[in-house]
């Protein structure tokens, strides 16, 4: 499969193209980490993270690729691993405490939202993640979800978002959420 075809498929939200990419460059990308003192878990994590970044950019149509997909992925993996090595080297410094505190705070908010998202049901979860994370347009969402037309997708998305907002707002006060 050529790069252009892969991009076309991903821009329509075809996850099989992502699977294809994962298999194709697995060895090449994980070796970046494995050959530089990383473990297999770290290597997979870095590569998967890079693919998710690529997926998000490509699916939303914001990616203007001026190189091959492999070159793009390679750069992301390299940068991710550099960041990880940096983070490891700072483990003993004081910055970590602050970082951990912030991340704990974020985790609490994340839990709140996750709990409400899980109550939405699969359809709503998919519509909202396709819209807000993948950046798919309503026409692609309608096609992916087998909706009758784009208007149906818009209506569903509106209702799902409204439902999620109200679930969060009814359970948590503004102060709790916005501390």
């Amino acid at each position: 499969m050529k790069d252009r075809e892969i991009l076309d498929r991903i821009s329509k939200g075809d996850e099989r193209a992502l699977d294809y990419l994962y298999k194709k460059y697995y060895k090449m990308m994980t070796n970046i980490v494995l050959k530089n003192n990383g473990t297999l878990d770290e290597a997979k994590d870095v590569y998967q993270e890079a693919l998710v970044v690529f997926w998000q950019k490509a699916a939303s149509g914001k990616l203007v690729l001026t190189s091959k997909i492999s070159t793009f992925l390679y750069s992301i993996c390299l940068n991710q691993w550099r960041k990880e090595l940096d983070r490891k080297s700072r483990l003993s410094s004081e910055e970590v405490d602050k970082e951990e505190y912030q991340s704990h705070d974020e985790q609490e908010r994340y839990k709140i939202v996750m709990q409400c998202i899980s109550e939405l049901g699969e359809t709503c979860k998919r519509i909202l993640t396709y819209y807000y994370f993948d950046g798919l347009n309503m026409s692609d969402i309608a096609e992916k979800m087998n909706f009758a037309n784009t208007d149906t997708a818009k209506t569903k998305k509106y209702k799902c978002k409204k439902k999620l907002d109200s679930l969060i707002k009814e359970r948590y006060t503004t102060t709790d959420f916005f501390d």
Binding site: K23, L51, E106, I112, T129, F133
Partner: peptide, 23 residues
């Protein structure tokens, strides 16, 4: 915050999909 939560859900889903691929 909502979009961040949705992003985490989607990322976890995509990673779980990739994890299931036999490489």
């Amino acid at each position: 915050n909502i979009v961040n939560g949705l992003s985490q859900v989607r990322k976890a889903e995509l990673k779980a999909r990739l994890d299931a691929i036999d490489v």
